[in-house]
């Protein structure tokens, strides 16, 4: 579904991604791990061009992503969930979810609303449609954020540390929603420190270190038999 070839990203003199080549298949759940500052967020944000890569190519469904040509369409097909939720605080939960389908996909208000209510039900928040985001707990906000992304019916979802800003007791409810999504066959790229999640639903784990894709493997292989010293060192801290 996504093919990444020799992806580079520099911020001025800071070389954050140093040539990453990999691919994400349809229906696959790819978990990205690595030390803080290794470039995980940047990698994810390059996929939907929130950061403009400074080198390399990314293909989505076989088509080269080109910010001048097709970035809007690509983003409609690639939902994103952020560490800090980034819900729109000035509108209600229901409007957070219907906004993009209405303004981007030109869905009628009724259709968008029906879709949003179904998604709220799916993430267990049917009763929160008319709340404002800041009336919800962190875990609830993140579930709304997932529903908001899903309302565009994306082919793929990007998650950037979706549980890192949550109190421990709320992590489970968000991971459960993500697990359901994975079971339904959603293609997912997930940056996370939740190794249990990686092991349970990950098809493949990428270990990023200082902007390099040091190794990638199935969770069980990577966790039990890491090839690089850096990987072993990192895993010893988080497992």
């Amino acid at each position: 579904m996504v093919t990444i070839q020799n992806l580079h990203k520099k911020f001025k003199n800071l070389h954050v991604l140093k040539g990453i080549t990999t691919s994400i298949e349809k229906g696959e759940v790819v978990v990205v791990i690595g030390p803080s500052g290794s470039g995980k967020s940047t990698f994810l944000r390059c996929l939907n061009f929130l950061e403009q890569p400074t080198g390399g190519e990314i293909y989505f469904d076989g088509v080269l992503i080109d910010p001048a040509k097709n970035i809007l369409q690509v983003r409609q097909e690639m939902g994103m969930v952020f560490q800090r939720f980034n819900l729109f605080p000035h509108i209600k939960v229901i409007d957070n979810i219907t906004l993009a389908p209405k303004t981007v996909r030109n869905l009628s208000a009724d259709e968008a609303r029906a879709r949003a209510l179904a998604l709220l039900d799916k993430v267990g928040l049917a009763d929160k449609a008319n709340s404002y985001p800041d009336q919800l707990s962190g875990g609830q906000q993140q579930r709304v954020a997932i529903a908001r992304a899903l309302a565009m019916r994306p082919k793929m979802m990007l998650f950037d540390e979706p549980t890192s800003a949550l109190d421990p007791e709320m992590i489970g409810e968000v991971l459960d929603v993500m697990k359901d999504l994975a079971k339904e066959g959603m293609t997912m790229a997930v940056v996370t420190h939740e190794m249990g999640f990686a092991r349970e639903v990950g098809d493949r784990v990428l270990f990023l270190d200082e902007g390099l894709l040091l190794e990638e493997n199935t969770p069980s292989e990577l966790f039990s038999n890491p090839q690089h010293a850096r990987t072993r060192e990192f895993l010893s801290k988080v497992l």
Partner: peptide, 16 residues
């Protein structure tokens, strides 16, 4: 900045 990013990630144009 996260507000703009969330909007863009949903496929909105910068103007929208």
């Amino acid at each position: 900045k996260g507000q703009t990013e969330a909007a863009l990630s949903l496929g909105l144009t910068p103007n929208k």
